[in-house]
């Protein structure tokens, strides 16, 4: 009986240590552009899409180039390996995931935060002149 518990606790302990280690490996922090530049680690940055008329999509290389301003206001050029995400114009904020390389932020994912993702646009009552 006792032995069973010791083995059980042992397995649970090993499993939790392993998963906590893997979790710390798999976590990607939300941070600022400055921090991302310093560490060079894979991070997430929440910010705004700015200088929108300069953004463009290079169809041959399948890369979308745009400028992101983080919450401190700092800007960085982002190269996203893919087409311009759908609904980017509508996003009230965007989150890019990737790392800084040179003067660019190479994004592997872009999350768009749409206020209207699951809700339609305006409530009827605010359409009143």
């Amino acid at each position: 009986m006792q032995k069973r518990y010791i083995i059980g606790i042992g397995i649970i302990a090993i499993a939790s240590i392993a998963s906590i280690y893997l979790l710390s490996e798999a976590q990607v922090q939300y941070t600022t552009i400055q921090d991302a530049r310093l560490t060079g680690k894979k991070v997430q940055i929440k910010g705004q899409w700015v200088e929108r008329d300069e953004a463009y999509y290079d169809q041959l290389n399948n890369s979308f180039y745009f400028t992101l301003a983080d919450e401190t206001g700092e800007k960085i050029k982002v190269i996203y390996n893919g087409a311009k995400p759908n609904h980017l114009e509508l996003a009230e904020a965007i989150v890019v995931r990737g790392r800084v390389e040179g003067s660019y932020f190479l994004a592997t994912d872009i999350l768009t935060k749409c206020p209207s993702k699951y809700e339609g646009a305006k409530p009827l009552s605010t359409q009143i002149p």
């Binding site: 893997l22 979790l23 976590q27 990607v28 922090q29 939300y30 941070t31 997430q44 995931r97």
Partner: peptide, 10 residues
């Protein structure tokens, strides 16, 4: 702690 996300790789 600072905000994090977990990658599907985990």
């Amino acid at each position: 702690k600072p905000k994090v996300a977990i990658e599907p790789e985990f």
